[in-house]
Structures are given as structure tokens and as C-alpha cells.
Design a protein around this nucleic acid. Sequence first.
DNA 1: CCGGATCCTATTGGATACTG
DNA 2: CAGTATCCAATAGGATCCGG
Lengths: 230, 230
Amino acid sequence: MATRDYGQYSGVTRALELVGERWALLIVRDLLVGPRRYGELAAGLPRIPSNILAARLKDLQAAGILRRAPRSRVIVYELTPYGRELEPVVLALGAWGYKALGDPQEQQIITPESMTMDLRSAFRADVAAGLPATAYAARVGPAELLIRVDGSALDVRPGDGLVDLAFATGPDIRRLISGELAPEKAIATGVVEVLRGRGSSSTDSRPPSTWPPEARGPQRARRGCLRPSM
Amino acid sequence: MATRDYGQYSGVTRALELVGERWALLIVRDLLVGPRRYGELAAGLPRIPSNILAARLKDLQAAGILRRAPRSRVIVYELTPYGRELEPVVLALGAWGYKALGDPQEQQIITPESMTMDLRSAFRADVAAGLPATAYAARVGPAELLIRVDGSALDVRPGDGLVDLAFATGPDIRRLISGELAPEKAIATGVVEVLRGRGSSSTDSRPPSTWPPEARGPQRARRGCLRPSM
DNA sequence: CCGGATCCTATTGGATACTG
DNA sequence: CAGTATCCAATAGGATCCGG
């Protein structure tokens, strides 16, 4: 490995030598949602310089964490089985970091990939096991997600579709994800606004008032990445 | 936070802003074993420059992850409750990294703290639940550890004491920790050498032959940190 | 336009020396 | 022992450029 090593024979140091550099785990996080093209990764990591993205992709590939795969004339990057085994690491980091998250700042964006992984990190299989199979359309700030819960399995992915229930939330969903707020209380206090109906999407509704007005309309900053704006 | 941020509102980015810098998670790892003094941390992280250690301690303290605590005239650093919640992150990273670990290289050391956390990462509560309470003295390469298993609880700490069973292992213990090798096979193949007896310590035995000769004697490089030497 | 490579500057980390 | 201060090397950031 080209990366500077820690001079220690241990699992944590080895892991940090492979994925400890800046941006590396964020690339892995986005690829945990699915294979992505170079430009899609760049769009989801708004501040990454293109030379750093290229360098990380090269390093992660050399480490056997991801691979370049040609998909009908375009190249996508996808995790190897070993790379996918980083999912517990990313989920644990996300769950921990979510507790230290305050209100969104100006210039902080939410991407579909980041919100997808944040929701996965909040999923409690034991709780979900008692629920009937349900599909949700969620608008979490500016990201639109399709969520399916079936037994103790969770499927979250960016997008839309036919669902049983649609809901929209503001930035306070973080209190729900971090476990600070119970789901019933979230609905009762308006943190989560339930939009009933077996409809198609959530595009026929407005986000709850906790989102500032300027965040309501879709303000595309870059391909597929919207800013919560405040 | 002074650290450069990722411009994203998500749990993983927030976590990486707090503990994503070089050396930070290794300091947390060592403090998960117990409170440590500045010099003890420096000894356990052999290549860390003292200015970096000082800077990280300051940042981690500002982030509410650790605190300086006066203990009878000396200052120790200890994790806050929030800092201790990083344990799942460190264990997941260690378990993942262990699978990518090859044989120890020259100049790679093993510290009691690193080996303690590596063993914790390999602990399977469900398996241990069926075993009687037992205390082990383990010499893992150059580190001497006291291991107690009771029900589904594991207690690993650097040190020695009265035990039920003593054993010594070479670098191939990594195949045991990573799950590649079953315990019975490890003993059968000599990866783990069992030194029977309800004795006091493992100091009356030699490590298995898989450790190179020059590693057999205790070669203290720095306080409490020994090198496996190849 | 996508997928990078290159160049240059700004920031951070690393090694060593030094101090209360 | 518990850190600072200094200086230099390495890395990240930003802009631009290039080939398909």
C-alpha cells in the first residue's frame, strides 16, 4: 500500500490504512447504495476535488474494495464482496455521528445516498419484525426515497414509486434517526407529516413548515444533490 | 469544529469530521481499554509525533469524546460516555481490517491495547454463553493478556494473574481472530500452544515456533510496547 | 459531456528540538 | 513527564486542460 502505515500489527490500524484517508469511507458509503459512475460519485460528494476522487478510486481498487465494471459502454464503480463488508462500519459511524448532528447549516447538502445510509443505520430489525410489509415514499428534506419494510428486512433506495404511505419530514428527522424521538411523538409534534393514500409519489404535497421556505422548491445545485438550505 | 467539513448533512460525514483525522480513532481505541496518561498513549502509538498527539487530544476533548481527568497528581485521559459509544465503530473496523492483515512486518509492533481490542472484536457472545466461567493468561506474541470469559461477557486487559489455563500463540492467531481458523484446528496445528495448569503466568514457557527466534525474548522498544519482529 | 490528468497553492501532518 | 515550537515534507483543494 502506498499509504503511510501506522507501524502496528492490528486490525484497526490495517483498516485505517486502507480506508482511513479523507473521502475514502464516503465513497464506500455511496457505493453501498449501489454502483455509481464517476460523475455520480462526484455529484454526491460535492466538495471532493476530481484528482482526489480519481486517486481514491485507484487506491480502493488496488486494495480490493471496489472494482471498475463496464456496463454497456459506460464504466461504473461497484464494491467487491470485501468492500461490502464495510457496511457495519459505515452504519456504526453514521449512527454515532447522527447524535452529534445539529441543525443543518447553510451550504450543507443532503444527497439521496447519504440519507439512504442514514436511514439504514436507524433501522431496528427487531422492531420492524412485528410490522406488516409496507412501502413508503419519504421526502426527507430535498431527497426522495422509496422505503420498503418486509419482516426484518429493510430496503431503502433513492427514487419513487407506488407506495402504501407517503410522508415528508424536516431536519428534525435527525431526532428520530438518532433515537431521541419516538415515532409516535414525531408524528404528533409534526416533525413527520403523514400524507395518506396509496398514491404514487409525494410530489403533490409541501414539506412541513420546519423547513425554511426557500428549501421548499427543488433547487438543484448539482446533478442529484439538493441543499436543505439552513 | 475547527476541522474541515464535508459540506454534507449526514451522520457519516459528521462522524468523520469528529474522528476521521489521522490517529484520532487509534487514540479512542487505546482509551477504550482504560484511561491512559499522555506518555502511555505516546508509547502505544509508536509513530505519532507528540505535537499531533497533543492536537488530537485537544480536538477530541473539544468534541466531547474524551476528557482530562486528574488522578492523584497525574493527569489521565478518559473517554466520555459519548466517546465510549465509539466502541462498535472500533470493533467493526478492527474485525474488517483483521481480514486484510498479512504476516507481521519488520517494524510493526503489537501493543497490549491493540491486541486487547482485536480480541474483543473477535468475541462471539453467543458462542461464549455455553462455556463455563474461565480465566486465561494469553501470550499473543509479545503482549501478555488476562482474559476472563463469564457467560456472554468478555473481559480482556493487559496484565497477568491467577488463571485456569495459559496459552501462547504466534502471528497466525490472526487466522483465529478473523474466523478463518476454528479453535480446535488452531490447537491441533500448533497455532495456539496450550500450557496447562492453574498456574500464575505464562512466563515459564516459550512461544510456539512460528515466532521467529529473535522475537522470543522480551525486547522492549518503548514502554509497554514490544515488537513481534517479522 | 464524461472521465479523468496536470499544475499550482494552501493546509496538514511528521520529525526534531526545546521548555515549564 | 507533558506537552510547544519550529521547520520541512506530504496531502488536500481548486482551477484548468485534454482525449474519447
